[in-house]
Design a protein around this nucleic acid. Structure first.
Lengths: 336, 336
DNA sequence: CCGGATTTTTACATCGTTGGCACAACGATG
DNA sequence: CATCGTTGTGCCAACGATGTAAAAATCCGG
């Protein structure tokens, strides 16, 4: 059924090794033989058995991409780009979903033995620093998005503090004074960073920190945003702007605001994070921090390539910051 | 570095085969030896080398899921479910993106040789019937979503004609008379089916077919929906309702309608297709045909299991219809 | 305590591929 | 013509796991 190199070699009248040499682009093959092998290759439609090749070469050709959930637009879009970037470098990308549970993320670190994949790109949501210390996956790891300061792992992300400060600074610039935040989280590193940026921006503008304006979101889904916003609107003095830690939260917030009969941006300005296409088409369209997802994907895959490149020199974790912009849309237009 | 069965066997003081027998649950192993091997297994943290195992067994344990693009919410959500359903049955799911190009879909059929995967679940967008005839991937194929009548391949989908008729029937029921459709496509099977359902519903209601109310969409993205809607709004007699062939088109349509200052559903009612979460949170929230995505994922994976089960009896393609509902939301509420 | 049946273990070949190495073929050089 | 360096090819082993089948250990009744 399946065509093997042996079949090709037999058809071309050469040894298996010569056929292999042609396939692998080895230089010194007699033109005559090369032609015959190539014809046989074409005639049989030969495809190398990846498993066997990897077994021999000691690599698998797979990298894992560990994300919370593909159904979340940001991760869907990111996965799409990582798959493409990986493909360009000859990798197959295997996607693992953790549903943002610490247990699943730990399991992935453990189970992704050294046999199955050559490296992993992971976007942890619930892992603690000690998890990394205690579970050694045995393959290079590149973290994207999340940031745990005391973990010695390669890391690709935007400057979350600066990004958050920029977003909130923009709200200040359009004249808002009671600026809320949605998305604080007890264990999530990025949440802490974005919250820090939020506080910095308030401080820089001389605005008071009002704890009641900061809402937690245990998951970053639309519903969580809607619930948090509903709570903010129930305050005696509701906010005149809200910075959501991702676009889904913001979309949920928009809905709660609309249900209360308030208008965006006139009554409340809204800024999101991730710049998903969904936000660009929401009503009103959503101002959002726009990480360069393509850069993140490319950089992560590139790191993987370097880490699997073999040089066993002393490991110095890389901390790479990718660019971002603030996409200003209807949800935060100035009042006049 | 990597622990092999040889290491385990040495540590347990038995032969490799005995260790293998324990790992594979072979019955006749002396309890004493079984215990020793199990201890060694635990002590070394052995993980089988999947590639080697598959090489020997002649299977790969992988199935491919071929979709246009993960960044599209419907496919992101579907992929998420297929991965989970596959995992439950012991499969690793490998995702391939085709960006809805015929070329990439053909390439996938060709390249997914029999070595890499055991089967493929494919959601074709641009493939023609003859592509299937001429390219034999050499592994079982299960189609989801798309329907090409004359292809002898397993197929899982909802009844697209009925679903479209239901959606349009609903628009008729709330009193709309000039009902447009967005999403016609020259080569896409599902588009033809949904269009047929649209026509059937109009006919059943005694409404005339107006060709100018049917717009093509070459891709099913938000932007295509927005453009098509803009054209409809430019008609001398614009529609009072529009049936979009997926939620993204509908979201784009909502935006165009809003930009023209018209209201949904008062001026124009909108119905989408796919029931993505994005649609449920859009403003107004989107009435949408809701395929049971979980059922589709489960059924497809189940078919894969049966097809790879080995019985080489005569191949009779299965045609499985999964259930759907119509989720009625704000975008198609009756006028009073 | 032996012959035979049954349970348990082991050696060996094998899956498809590639690296290492020996050797063959070749033209060029002294 | 002998020698040499350069090219090109084929043989063998190996990657890690498992199927086959034979060998070894164990058990049973007589």
């Amino acid at each position: 059924m399946a065509v093997t190199l042996r079949d090709v070699a037999r058809l071309a009248g050469v040894s298996i090794k010569t056929a292999s040499n042609v396939v692998n682009g080895y230089e010194f093959v007699k033109p005559e033989n090369r032609r015959r092998v190539e014809e046989a290759l074409a005639a049989t439609g030969y495809r190398p058995n990846i498993g066997a090749r990897n077994l021999r070469r000691g690599r698998t050709g797979f990298i894992a991409l560990v994300v919370p959930e593909l159904g979340i637009p940001y991760f869907g879009e990111l996965a799409s780009l990582v798959i493409t970037a990986g493909r360009e470098q000859g990798w197959n990308v295997l996607i693992e979903q953790t549903m943002a549970t610490r247990e699943a993320e730990r399991a992935v670190l453990t189970a992704l033995g050294p046999h199955m994949i050559d490296a992993a790109v992971i976007s942890p949501e619930a892992l603690h620093a000690e998890d990394f210390a205690e579970l050694d996956p045995g393959v290079p790891l590149v973290m994207i998005g999340e940031h745990s300061v005391d973990v010695r792992i390669d890391h690709v992300a935007i400057d979350n503090v600066l990004a958050a400060r920029t977003a909130v600074g923009h709200l200040v610039a359009i004249g808002r004074r009671r600026i809320a935040a949605i998305g604080a989280h007890p264990h999530r590193g990025t949440a802490a960073l974005r919250l820090a940026g939020y506080h910095e921006a308030l401080a820089a503008a001389g605005l008071p920190q009002r704890p009641e304006l900061v809402r937690e979101a245990l998951r970053y889904h639309r519903q969580n945003g809607a619930e948090a916003m509903a709570q903010l609107l129930a305050l005696p003095e509701p906010p005149d702007a809200v910075f959501c830690f991702n676009d889904l939260l913001a979309v949920g917030a928009l809905r709660s605001i609309a249900e209360r009969g308030l208008r965006v941006p006139e009554d409340i300005a809204v800024v999101g994070f991730d710049n998903t296409e969904e936000g660009a088409y929401s009503r009103p369209s959503l101002t959002s921090v726009a990480p360069d997802k393509l850069a993140i994907a490319r950089t992560a895959v590139d790191l993987v390539r370097r880490r699997t490149g073999g040089t066993d020199a002393e490991f110095v974790p890389e901390e790479i910051q990718t660019p971002f912009t603030l996409e200003i849309r209807e949800s935060s237009l100035p009042r006049f």
